[in-house]
Every structure is written in structure tokens, then in C-alpha cells.
Design a protein around this nucleic acid. Structure first.
Length: 887
RNA sequence: GGGCGGAUAGCUCAGUUGGGAGAGCAUCUCUCUUACAAAGAGAAGGUCACAGGUUCGAACCCUGUUUCGCCCACCA
């Protein structure tokens, strides 16, 4: 016999198996045409990041799936990697430079990039190491980075091709500018938040002195750049003013009153709108329509420009205050109203966005996404849960051109060269020798690409695109993308567009959107809010397996969940339970144990002398195997984990192991041993994808103790159990359910009557079915587990406590072991509850409408309930009568 | 302003086609019964947010309300 330690101690076990797995090369996959591939690519974490609980959950899901697929015989590949995260990393590097007294803007591009790469080397590996520690069985030999040479070539290729095809163009319009990060942002990188502010009403006098108009604005400082005032031509109040001019206060400039029915809603405010083409996207459009000049009064630094006259140099918000004050002094502030409106902020640094007119590169994203719309509608790419498909469709339908250029150094530099002489733009893979048009000197665009432009290529590029590599042919399309909800549009939809465009293929069949884990108080989990929980802390406390399973338990599909540490405890306790169950089994088999049923593949049905308890646990094992596969197929990881948890704890440990104990001492020893070992071995393989370290360690213990009863390999590459319907045994399941019901009833009697464990009780069992064979056959179980003497004498004993079980009437003689007062209170309470249920059921059965219209099966079920309740009622009345007679 | 999701036991959450309301943790009572006290046995605990409707029957379907969260949105 082999003896394990008394409790599961994860630390040493985890270190040990990480090394064995790694040295064994189990994570690596190569093209193999003889096998079916299963491939996924992870969402590459930012090199600025650290593991948080969201990652913990996401990668628990990834690894559970790929371990399952690997054991199931697929040639399984999971490609890991990291993302350069242009803006985030830039901010981090700038901050770290400033902290060291270095001005990041002053050191120049090359120096800055050196620092950024150093940063990447230092921190980029951190999260990868954390993923490794989590046990993720990804192909680390294929680890990629979005700025490695091959990936960069893919990005450049993509840009050049889209430009040549007309999907990318350069243009000037009002874009989102972050004055802190000093770059433009796409619309998706702007977060809107309601802010309470004011709606200032400004009075602009007509130039001819014939009166004035009042305009409303949330941004008074932009009035310095007004180049018109607009009204709706159908608004009778104001259409007489069209063509006149007003005198722009503070600037003393005459600007025209124009008609713009698109811009002006007569119902809103005063019906007169100030038009600032340089600082508002709508006004910019109006300016284009009406040939208005742009006056830029706010600069890239967020301060007022020379065009702002006396306000030049002021911060934009300081200018706002001064201008309001000055207008008020001039009597031109007509009104100030409290006003709540939505204000755009930089998603990275929360600075208020400044709309500015700038030359940028644009991508006609909607045109590219049309095919995405189709493959999602057709279900070619399937979302789990599917409501996210509909949301994505809506997003695509409302797409506008995507600004893909960033004024940052860290990223993929745009492959565009401007002629210094004639202005010609050349877009190609390599720098041209000179301007192809005039031969003049060229200079490369200083800007880089939006990170999401590069990550949109991820699953293709990590498998070799733009080359049509064997990897791509074999592993692509990938099977699945697992993602958090927040990047469904930024990333998931765009990958589909790019893949459809370049390869006429979807990038993945399924998109699984996992739960978002919130803090215990329901707030977003974030380090800055102080609501973050470090998964490493959980791993330290409960072990990696428990952390993984605990996270899976919490994460119902697509549903947000609050973090709940008790799930970790639950899983930790479960790990220990399984550990001890294995310990028990191994303590009860001799080293070198073997059994003919293991020859040439385990078949429990070949074990001689199986009793109904054996048949039952084998049947339940099969049912669990089926349930786990079905749940995993549907990405219901919580259900799959729960099915295994319940099988191991509530069926195997609570009942089967207890039933096996007496048999291990007698003639049935070999049978019980074979079933124990076989079921355990099977269970460890089933559970491995969920709890990889624990199951490896326990499996190894079995392999050492009973080599003939286990696979020769670590579990990671052992075959995953397949459902075998022949193992099911409905009769045995029925029989055990009945026997367990009697045991439960007897245990309740013990508790209700305060019978001490050592004190014997006798159970007179009167089965409800005619023969009672099933219960008679299971008498030994009742005897053992209820610690009761059992008789099937139909004669009703005197002074017996009726303990009704679903399959039998059970009577326990109570001489000398009755606590009358407690029992009587309890019986009265139970009786009231039963009678309430009974009244409800009888009401139903007495209702003609119910009996007439409900399906026969439902009615029969109801009658059964009635019989059962009536039996309980009779039992309880008997109990009370008995108690009265004894009182 | 649109769209989506949630509201079930003290807490965190399950509840597959409408048919006697579940789990884990926490609580209470017993037990160190030779795998496990990170355990075993027993128990208590819920007008399934609210109001209508459909149905023989609603946690589940429909309508409305309240409330929390998320996403999208260029209305001054």
C-alpha cells in the first residue's frame, strides 16, 4: 500500500509538474495531416499588464478547453503572445522617464524607442510567466509579439494593400485629440461620461446695430473661433437675418448669419447656433457645406493659440472662465443654465478630448465589414451567448470611417513617404529612393498605427500571414476566440473583417464571451479603484487548481459576477477531498495491484462479482462523463465543473467509499478494489483539464501503486474518457436511490430523537413495491450506513416511530431512546407543512380544469405527490399519537 | 436618446422546452465512526423586485413600473 500525505499541499506539486510538462514538450504542436487540429490563439495581453482576475478566468477557460481537446485526441495548438499596446506602453514609458528626470519629448524618437523596448523586455515577460504559473499549456515555443519582425511585416502589408485597394485614405477633419497623450484617438477609444456643467447663452450683436441674437454653448471658449452663426431657414423667427452679419464679441470680427438646416434644430435652445468649424465635428461639416474658414483657437497642448488674441497662452478651461466673465462684464451673457451632458474622455488617461482639425489616415471600415455582417448573420461565426452577435451587427451598421493614425513613436510606423518638394505621397513596403513623381527627397510619415489595426490580424499573422504557410493551411481558421466583452468591437469584429478580406475565411468558428468579474461590492474591479484582487494571492492561499476551478464555478456564460472568495475555499476543500479519497483507495490496495478487468483497456463490466452498489457508481460515472462532455461542448464550464464536483463528493465519497469499506475486509475485496481504482483513475482523467496539477500528482500515485491500472503517460496526454452507454444501469440507480432514501430517513430519526451514534436502532422496513427485492438486496447498505439493524418483517412493531422514506414505510422502535419534547415540536411543525402542501395538491386534483386540460403525465405525477404527502401525513400523525401515549 | 443584461435563502449565484423552489459559503445541533474537522450526520432559512395579463397551472411567456450595471450616440 501507498500512503499519501494527509492533506494536499499544492506548492511543491505545482512546481514539479510545471517542469515535467515543460520538459516533455506536451504543449507544442506541429502540422500533422494525419490528425485533426484544434487551434486557438489567446487575446495577447498588453506588455504593460499584470495578471488580474479577468485574465485568471480567461486563461482558466482557455487551458481547460485545450487540455480537454488535447486529451480527446486533437492535435491541439494554443498560440500565446503579447501586444505592444501603443498608447498604454507609451504612457508608462513616458512616466517612468519623467520619474527619472528625463523629458520624453526631448530625447527624440530613436532614444525613446530604445527605452520602450527595454520596458517591453522587462515587463512583457512578466504576464507570460504568470500565465505559465497558472498552468497554461500553451505552445510557448510559438510565443509572438505584435511588433516582432514577422508580425510587423504583416501589418505593413495590410496597410499597403488596403491603401492600394482604396480602403485607406488620408484626410483632414475634426478628430479626437488627447492633449495629455498628444495623439489622436479613434471614436472607440473615447469614453463618454455625463458631466454636470452649464449651458451658457451668449449674446452676439448684429453688425448693423439692429439688435442681437443669442446662441447657446457648453464650450464658450470656442466662440473665439466662430466663423458664422447658423439658423434654420424654416424658422420664421430668424430667417430674416440670413445674409446679415453679427459682430463676434471679444474678437470684434464680423461673421455671417447662415442657413444650415442640417445643423440647426429650431426646437432646441434659441434656434441659433454658433459655428466653430475648427473645434466641433458638426460645425466642421457645416463649415465644409458653407465654405466657412477654420480658425483654430485651441492648440495641441490644450492652450489657446495666437488666434485667440488676448486669451492666447491660457489653458482651455482657464480661458473658458475668463471669457464668460468678460462677456458678463460686457452685458453679453444672456443666461446660464445648469446642464448635464455627455463629455468625451481619453480612454487611457481620462483627459477631456479636444476635437481638432488634423490630417489623419482613415480606414473605410464599414466597407470592409460588410462581409463580417454576413458571416455573423449566417451564423458562420457563432457567438456564445448569441446576443453579442446582434450587438455586433448593430455596431457594424453604424460604422463610420476609422482613424488609424497615432502621433506616437511606439508602434508600427506608417509606410507612407511624403515628397519634400511636390508633396506626393508614396505608400509601399520599403522606403522609396526618391519621389516617384519628381525625384525629390522623401520623408516617412512620423505617425504610427492604431494598435487595433495591427491586432486585427492576430490569428492570421501568428500563423504566418501574409505568407500562405503550412501552419495557416492546417490550423486556420482557428476554432475559437475567447474574449472579454469590452473588446468585441475594438478587436473581435475587426479580426473577422480582415480575415474575410485577405483570406476569404473566417478567423474562428466560435466567439466565447466570458463573464466579467466585478469586485465584491459590484464595482468594476480595478487597481486604481482599490477594488482589484490579485489572482496570485488566491493561488498562494488556495493553490492554482482551486483558483482555476473556483473561477470557473463563478463564471456563468456571459454573465457578470461578483468576486466570491468562498468559491475558492469550496474548490480548495474539494481538492483536499479528492486527495483524501485517493489516499483511502491507495491505502487499501497492495502495491502492484492489478485485476483482469484492466487488461487491454479498463472495462468495469468485466469485473467479477459486481454488486448493485458497484453497478450504481459505474453508471453514475458514465452519466457524469456524458454530462461533462455535453457541458464542455456548449462552453458551460461551470456546469462541467459542478458535475464532476458532485460526482466525486456526493456520490463517490459520500456513498460508494462508505459502501466499500466493509467489503475491503472480506471476500469481495478484489471486486471493491478494482471498482475503486477504476472509477478513480477514470475520474482523474475527467477532471484533469479543470485541476491539472492535483490530478497529475494523484494519477502518478496510482500509476506507481498500480501500474497496470493506469495510462503509462502523465494525464496531460492520457486519453479523455468517452461516454459508454453500456455502463449505464438504470435498475441499479433506482435501487440505490431507494436504499439511500431509507438511510436518509433513519439518519433523520437518529437526529430527531437524539440517539447517540453508538446506540443501536432497529429498522422495520415495509417496502412499497410488492416484492421489496430491491431494498432487501440493499439491506447491507442500510445496515452499514444508517448503523441500524434491519428487518423486513411486515408486522408493525409496538411503540415504533414511523420514518417514511420514498420507497418504504420504516418503523423504528423507540423504547428507551425518545426525547419526547423536542420530537413533538418538530413533528407538529412538519405536519403543518405537509398539510399545506397536501391541500395545494388536492386542490389541483379537484380542479376540473386541471384534470381536463393538463397532460396525463403531469396529472399522474400530481397523484403520486398526493400519495406521498398523504403517507407523510399519516406518519406524522402516528408520531404525534405515539408521543402523546408516551408523554 | 437608443440597445443589452441583471433583480431568486443572510452572502455569491444555479434554475435547459411553463408542472411539487436549488448549490456553495455563513448560521444552528450532534460527532475527533480507523481517507478527509479543509471532515461526517442532521436542521433551519425564500409573497423568486412590483403591478397587471395569458394559462388548468408562471421564478420561467406577454405588457407596464421600480432599480442596478454595461454598451452605443456629433444634438448647440
Amino acid at each position: 500500500m501507498t500512503e499519501l500525505a494527509k492533506a494536499y499541499e499544492p506548492k511543491a506539486v505545482e512546481a514539479k509538474w510545471l517542469e515535467i510538462w515543460n520538459n516533455g514538450g506536451y504543449f507544442h504542436a506541429e502540422v500533422d495531416e494525419t490528425r485533426k487540429p484544434y487551434c486557438l490563439t489567446i487575446p495577447p495581453p498588453n506588455v504593460t499588464g499584470e495578471l488580474h482576475l479577468g485574465h485568471g478566468l480567461q486563461h482558466s477557460i482557455h487551458d481547460t478547453l485545450i487540455r480537454w481537446k488535447r486529451m480527446s485526441g486533437f492535435n491541439t495548438l494554443c498560440v500565446p503572445g503579447t501586444d505592444h499596446a501603443s498608447i498604454s506602453t507609451t504612457i508608462k514609458v513616458r512616466d517612468s522617464l519623467r520619474a527619472r528626470g528625463i523629458d520624453p519629448a526631448a530625447i527624440g524618437r530613436e532614444k525613446f524607442l530604445e527605452h520602450a523596448w527595454a520596458w517591453k523586455e522587462e515587463y512583457g515577460g512578466k504576464i507570460i510567466n504568470q500565465l505559465k504559473a497558472l498552468g497554461c499549456s500553451y505552445d510557448w515555443r510559438r510565443e509572438r509579439f505584435t511588433m516582432d519582425a514577422g508580425y510587423s511585416r504583416a501589418v505593413t502589408t495590410s496597410f499597403v494593400r488596403l491603401y492600394q485597394e482604396g480602403y485607406i485614405y488620408r484626410g483632414k477633419r475634426v478628430v479626437n485629440w488627447c492633449v495629455t497623450d498628444r495623439t489622436t484617438l479613434s471614436d472607440l477609444e473615447v469614453e463618454h461620461a455625463d458631466e454636470t456643467s452649464s449651458l451658457w447663452h451668449l449674446r452676439y450683436p448684429l453688425s448693423d446695430g439692429s439688435g442681437s441674437v443669442v446662441v447657446a454653448t457648453t464650450r464658450p471658449e470656442t466662440m473665439l473661433g466662430d466663423t458664422a452663426v447658423a439658423v434654420n431657414s424654416r424658422d420664421p423667427r430668424w430667417n430674416g437675418l440670413i445674409g446679415k452679419t453679427v459682430r463676434l464679441p471679444l474678437m470684434d470680427r464680423d461673421i455671417p448669419v447662415i442657413a444650415d438646416d442640417i445643423l440647426v434644430d429650431p426646437e432646441f435652445g434659441t434656434g441659433v447656433v454658433k459655428v466653430t468649424p475648427a473645434h466641433d465635428p458638426n460645425d466642421f461639416q457645416s463649415g465644409m457645406r458653407n465654405n466657412l474658414p477654420q480658425v483654430v483657437v485651441i492648440g495641441l497642448d490644450g492652450h489657446m493659440t495666437e488666434e485667440a488674441g488676448p486669451y492666447a497662452g491660457l489653458d482651455r478651461f482657464e480661458a473658458r472662465e475668463r471669457i464668460v466673465k468678460d462677456l458678463e462684464a460686457l452685458g453679453l451673457l444672456a443666461d446660464v443654465q445648469d446642464y448635464t451632458h455627455s463629455v468625451g474622455h481619453c480612454a487611457r488617461c481620462q483627459t477631456i478630448i479636444e476635437p481638432l482639425p488634423l490630417d489623419q489616415w482613415w480606414c473605410r471600415e464599414k466597407d470592409l465589414a460588410l462581409r463580417t455582417l454576413n458571416v455573423i448573420r449566417e451564423g458562420e461565426v457563432q457567438y456564445f451567448p448569441d446576443r453579442f452577435a446582434g450587438m455586433t451587427e448593430q455596431w457594424i451598421e453604424n460604422l463610420r470611417d476609422w482613424n488609424i493614425s497615432r502621433q506616437l513613436w511606439w508602434g508600427h510606423r506608417i509606410p507612407a513617404w511624403f515628397c519634400q518638394d511636390c508633396g506626393e505621397v508614396t505608400v509601399q513596403m520599403e522606403a522609396p529612393d526618391g519621389c516617384p513623381k519628381c525625384g525629390g527627397a522623401v520623408k516617412q510619415d512620423a505617425d504610427t498605427l492604431d494598435t487595433w489595426f495591427s491586432s486585427a490580424l492576430w490569428p492570421m499573422a501568428v500563423l504566418g500571414w501574409p505568407d500562405d504557410t503550412p501552419d495557416l493551411k492546417y490550423f486556420y481558421p482557428t476554432n475559437l476566440m475567447i474574449t472579454a466583452r469590452d473588446i468585441l468591437y475594438l478587436w473581435i469584429a475587426r479580426m473577422v473583417s480582415m480575415s474575410e478580406h485577405y483570406r476569404d475565411q473566417i478567423p474562428y468558428n466560435d466567439v466565447y464571451v466570458h463573464a466579467t468579474i466585478q469586485a465584491t461590492d459590484g464595482r468594476r474591479m480595478s487597481k486604481s479603484l482599490g477594488t482589484g484582487v490579485d489572482p496570485l494571492e488566491m493561488i498562494e492561499k488556495y493553490g492554482t487548481d482551486a483558483t482555476r476551478l473556483g473561477l470557473l464555478f463563478m463564471a456563468a456564460k456571459g454573465q457578470d459576477v461578483r468576486f466570491n472568495e468562498s468559491r475558492m475555499q469550496e474548490s480548495r476543500n474539494f481538492a483536499n477531498k479528492l486527495w483524501n479519497a485517493t489516499r483511502f483507495v491507495l491505502m487499501n490496495v497492495d502495491d502492484g495491484f492489478t485485476h483482469p478487468a484492466f487488461d487491454g483497456g479498463f472495462d468495469p463490466l468485466r469485473i467479477e462479482g459486481l454488486n448493485s452498489g458497484d453497478a450504481w457508481i459505474i453508471s453514475r460515472l458514465a452519466a457524469t462523463t456524458e454530462a461533462v462532455a455535453a457541458s464542455l461542448d456548449a462552453y458551460n464550464f461551470d456546469d462541467a465543473g459542478r458535475a464532476l464536483y458532485e460526482f466525486v463528493w456526493n456520490e463517490f465519497c459520500d456513498w460508494y467509499v462508505e459502501m466499500a469499506k466493509p467489503r475491503l475486509q472480506g471476500e469481495e475485496k478484489a471486486t471493491a478494489q478494482a471498482v475503486l481504482v477504476g472509477v478513480l483513475e477514470h475520474t482523474l482523467r475527467l477532471l484533469h483539464p479543470f485541476m491539472p496539477f492535483l490530478t497529475e500528482e494523484l494519477y502518478e500515485a496510482i500509476r506507481n501503486a498500480a501500474p497496470a491500472c493506469a495510462a503509462k503517460t502523465p494525464v496531460i496526454v492520457a486519453p479523455y474518457p468517452q461516454y459508454n452507454p453500456a455502463w449505464r444501469n438504470v435498475d441499479a440507480e433506482t435501487q440505490m436511490t431507494e436504499a439511500f432514501g431509507v438511510v436518509d430517513a433513519l439518519r433523520s430519526v437518529r437526529a430527531a430523537l437524539n440517539v447517540p451514534p453508538g446506540h443501536p436502532i432497529t429498522a422495520h422496513i415495509v417496502p412499497r413495491d410488492t416484492t421489496g427485492d430491491r431494498l432487501k438486496d440493499a439491506a447491507w447498505i442500510i445496515r452499514r450506513l444508517a448503523r441500524a439493524e434491519v428487518t423486513f418483517n411486515a408486522e408493525r412493531p409496538e411503540k415504533a416511530w414511523p420514518a417514511g422514506a420514498p420507497a418504504a414505510d420504516v418503523f423504528v422502535p423507540v423504547e428507551g431512546l425518545l426525547d419526547v419534547s423536542a420530537a413533538s415540536a418538530k413533528a407538529n411543525k412538519d405536519l403543518a407543512a405537509v398539510e399545506k402542501d397536501l391541500a395545494r395538491t388536492r386542490g389541483k386534483l379537484g380542479n376540473e380544469a386541471f384534470v381536463g386540460k393538463a397532460p396525463e403525465a403531469v396529472i399522474e405525477k400530481e397523484r403520486e405527490i398526493e400519495r406521498e404527502l398523504a403517507g407523510k401525513q399519516a406518519s406524522l400523525n402516528e408520531r404525534l399519537a405515539l408521543l402523546n401515549s408516551l408523554a
